[in-house]
Simulated scan of single mutants.
Amino acid sequence: MAVLLVVTGVGQMGDTGKPTGWYLPEVAHPWKVFTDAGLKVTFASPKGGKTPVDPSSVEAFKGDPVCAQFLENNDLMAQLDSTASLADVKPSDYKAIFFAGGHGTMWDFPDDVNLLKVTAAVYEQGGVVSSVCHGQAALVNVKLSDGSYLVQGKKVTSWTNNEENAVKLMEVMPFPLETKLRERGCDFVETTVFTENVQVAGRLVTGQNPASATPTAAAVVKAISG
């Protein structure tokens, strides 16, 4: 019983010079939920290798014990410095794929050919596809074998346009994530900015923001066992 936990390999927001990366609580908390449930977690990224943590997330969550313990775990940090490339991943090895957020995902998730293939394969073999916050950048272009978008007709959430505007980064993003998901035909569900929101559409599980990371992962565990 294994989960593929995918993180961004991008450490800068476009050409702004502003640092980014994977968002700490959206990796640390799901990792804990999955491992506490007895699931094996493999870290991957679109190109493999070393991946950056968003420094702002380290600062924001320095008082969070789960995040602190995660950062202090040298073995986990080594794994995130040597992630598997999605080109080398065998989808049949995994019951679920989980895309962590962080603004970097907006640049390397949407159009990565191997990401699109692996995600569709996991879903069509009966596995769970899941993501939180900007991790949903992975879902905007995933098509199933019948040509339909994975998110089409399903209840989905993500980091919202209101949240992007609230942190004043909308102009930096290559596209507005919520808008793109709506264009793909999903039934987009949002709640108040920065508050917990998890949507479960069968084997597609999405969470809105960092506050949703733990319950999103818990919903994944339930979907796997269900």
Rank of each mutant, 00 (worst) to 15 (best):
L24K: 09
V172T: 14
Y123C: 00
G17E: 07
E164T: 09
V27W: 00
S56D: 13
S130K: 08
T195F: 01
H134V: 10
W31K: 00
M1I: 02
M77N: 10
K32D: 12
C186G: 05
A138G: 09
Y123W: 05
E190W: 07
Q125H: 03
S57G: 15
V118C: 01
V189A: 12
P176M: 15
L139H: 06
E164I: 06
L71D: 00
G147F: 12
K155Q: 07
E26M: 13
V33L: 05
G14T: 02
K40C: 03
V118N: 02
A219K: 03
V7C: 07
K62N: 13
D146S: 10
A37V: 00
E124I: 11
V198E: 03
N165H: 11
T119L: 03
P19I: 07
D112W: 06
T160F: 01
M106Q: 05
K40H: 11
L169E: 09
F109L: 14
K18N: 07
C133F: 08
E171Y: 09
E72V: 07
V10A: 03
V41D: 04
V205Q: 04
A121L: 04
S45H: 07
T191A: 11
N209Q: 08
A78V: 12
K180L: 06
E196R: 03
L86T: 01
A166E: 15
L177H: 09
S85E: 13
A68L: 15
V10K: 05
V33A: 03
P25T: 03
K32Q: 10
L177K: 15
K222Q: 05
E178R: 08
V221Q: 02
V142Y: 05
E196K: 07
Q79Y: 08
L144K: 03
V113W: 08
A138V: 06
V205M: 09
K90T: 13
K155M: 01
A166F: 08
C186I: 08
K32N: 12
P55V: 03
G202L: 15
T16I: 06
G185K: 07
L4S: 00
N161I: 10
T192R: 07
G104F: 04
K180T: 13
K143S: 02
K50C: 14
N74H: 10
G207E: 00
V113C: 08
G126T: 12
H103A: 14
T35N: 11
A138C: 09
G11A: 14
D187R: 12
P19D: 04
T157D: 14
G104E: 05
M173F: 08
K155S: 06
V10T: 15
T105V: 12
V129Q: 10
L115C: 05
E190S: 15
D146H: 09
Y149W: 04
N74F: 01
K154A: 06
P25Y: 00
P210I: 08
L144Y: 05
P65F: 13
G14I: 06
K18D: 05
V200D: 04
C133H: 13
T214V: 10
